[in-house]
């Protein structure tokens, strides 16, 4: 029998290389700041962050699968658990909880109590529409797309806007069947 998939990312987190949390937070802050200066529109910044996250996600999934030893997830529920418990722990150092499943199990919420990206951050009046952590939604979307799940990831709650936690809604749009990369006649 294959070894059971790890239920938490603690062990992996202990072994990966880490950077100073403040360096990480401030680097991310500098990126967002620069995007705000360059793009001027808050909406554009949200889009750009999401795109950057997507680009990270499609690469990160390989690293995740290589290091975490998770076995194939049988359904979307298991996938969500793996992201929340192993994925977030491995790369962000925090764990999320999975809640708010809808009836047919295609949509759920990842709730983050603690988010290292937002230390020190306070949204000024000029950036009220900004989803500061939009990069995370992009990462999740990109990573899932690489394992043939089309998803839509949106922010439901955001502490920077006065909510009590970070809630990321992950909605499974469709599962793309794995395609054989060659056509028969090639």
């Amino acid at each position: 029998m294959a070894p059971a998939a790890p239920r938490s990312g603690d062990a992996i987190f202990a072994n990966v290389e880490r950077v100073n949390a403040e360096l990480f937070t401030l680097t991310y802050g500098a990126i967002v700041r620069q995007l705000l200066t360059d793009l001027e529109e808050v909406e554009e910044v949200n889009k750009q962050l999401d795109q950057m996250g997507y680009n990270i996600g499609i690469r990160l999934i390989d690293e995740f699968l290589a290091k975490s030893n998770v076995s194939r997830c049988v359904d979307f529920k298991e996938t969500a658990e793996a992201i929340a418990k192993v994925g977030f722990k491995m790369f962000l150092g925090v764990t999320a909880s999975v809640t708010n499943w809808d009836a047919d199990g295609t949509s759920c919420s990842l709730v983050l109590e603690d988010n290292p990206l937002v230390d020190f951050v306070e949204l000024p009046d000029t950036c009220q529409g900004l989803y500061y952590c939009n990069i995370l939604s992009g990462v999740v979307r990109g990573a899932l797309e690489m394992v043939s799940m089309k998803t839509e990831v949106t922010w439901i709650r955001d502490m920077l806007r006065g909510d009590d936690a970070y809630e990321l809604q992950v909605k499974l749009l469709k599962q793309v069947p794995e395609e054989y990369p060659y056509k028969d006649d090639e």
């Binding site: 403040e22 991310y28 802050g29 967002v32 700041r33 230390d119 020190f120 951050v121 949204l123």
Partner: peptide, 8 residues
Amino acid sequence: KVLLNPLY
């Protein structure tokens, strides 16, 4: 703390 806020 205010100074560390990237948006400030």
